[in-house]
Computed example of a mutant assay.
Amino acid sequence: MDDNGDKKLDKYEFGKGFREFGCELTKEEVAELFTIFDRNGSGFVDFEDMLCTLRQPMRQCRKNLVLMAFQKFDKDNTGKITISDLRGVYTAKHHPKFISGKMTEDEVFGEFLQTFTQSTKPVKEVKWEEFFNYYHGISCSIDLDVYFDVMMRQAWKL
């Protein structure tokens, strides 16, 4: 659908994509769907918008586990995890790049935080929504709640 390769869809590409897949929609229907898919109101639908709109809602028991993990890090209850929040909860001392001297502890923490975002730039914090979206994506690939539960509890020592 992304004809110009800019990794996002404008209204024209969005509507054209539906037509190419055999969905004949009116301009009004395309506009309504575009508004739903353009979750951040940017005027474009990017890959994250597409995924977030198409995946099914996460079950409450899974949301609770993700929230528990987030709260384990968000010590000051700001709704975001920062590098300072990671100190004392996450250690960089065993990270290969820290051991080799290629990265400082803060750089290791920044790399860790980067995991949860779509940003290509270095990050110093992760908001709840980013953390949740990361685990929402993972949740979609795990069929049973019990497996998701075990994964979260073991990964975050909950």
Results as ranks from 00 to 15, higher is better:
residue 1 M to W: 06
residue 4 N to A: 05
residue 7 K to V: 06
residue 7 K to L: 11
residue 9 L to T: 00
residue 9 L to A: 02
residue 11 K to N: 01
residue 12 Y to F: 02
residue 13 E to V: 08
residue 16 K to H: 05
residue 17 G to F: 06
residue 19 R to M: 06
residue 21 F to N: 06
residue 22 G to Y: 09
residue 25 L to A: 10
residue 27 K to V: 09
residue 30 V to F: 08
residue 31 A to G: 09
residue 32 E to R: 02
residue 35 T to K: 13
residue 36 I to Y: 05
residue 36 I to E: 06
residue 37 F to E: 00
residue 40 N to A: 13
residue 44 F to L: 10
residue 45 V to C: 12
residue 45 V to W: 00
residue 45 V to Q: 00
residue 47 F to P: 02
residue 47 F to C: 12
residue 48 E to N: 14
residue 48 E to A: 12
residue 49 D to E: 10
residue 50 M to S: 11
residue 50 M to A: 15
residue 51 L to G: 07
residue 54 L to D: 09
residue 61 C to D: 13
residue 69 A to I: 12
residue 69 A to G: 07
residue 70 F to E: 03
residue 72 K to P: 00
residue 73 F to L: 13
residue 74 D to F: 02
residue 77 N to E: 14
residue 78 T to E: 15
residue 78 T to W: 05
residue 79 G to T: 13
residue 79 G to H: 09
residue 79 G to A: 13
residue 81 I to V: 14
residue 83 I to E: 05
residue 83 I to G: 10
residue 83 I to P: 01
residue 84 S to K: 14
residue 84 S to I: 12
residue 86 L to D: 00
residue 87 R to Y: 01
residue 89 V to E: 12
residue 89 V to S: 13
residue 90 Y to W: 13
residue 92 A to R: 00
residue 92 A to L: 08
residue 93 K to Y: 01
residue 95 H to L: 07
residue 97 K to S: 12
residue 98 F to E: 02
residue 100 S to Q: 12
residue 101 G to L: 11
residue 101 G to T: 05
residue 104 T to D: 10
residue 104 T to K: 14
residue 104 T to E: 14
residue 107 E to T: 09
residue 107 E to D: 10
residue 108 V to R: 01
residue 109 F to D: 06
residue 110 G to L: 04
residue 113 L to E: 02
residue 115 T to V: 15
residue 115 T to G: 11
residue 116 F to N: 05
residue 119 S to H: 14
residue 119 S to F: 10
residue 121 K to C: 15
residue 124 K to P: 05
residue 125 E to V: 14
residue 125 E to N: 12
residue 128 W to H: 03
residue 128 W to Y: 15
residue 131 F to R: 01
residue 136 H to M: 08
residue 136 H to A: 15
residue 139 S to D: 06
residue 139 S to T: 03
residue 140 C to Q: 15
residue 142 I to R: 02
residue 145 D to K: 04
residue 147 Y to I: 07
residue 148 F to A: 02
residue 150 V to K: 14
residue 151 M to W: 00
residue 152 M to A: 08
residue 153 R to G: 07
residue 153 R to L: 07
residue 156 W to K: 03
residue 158 L to I: 15
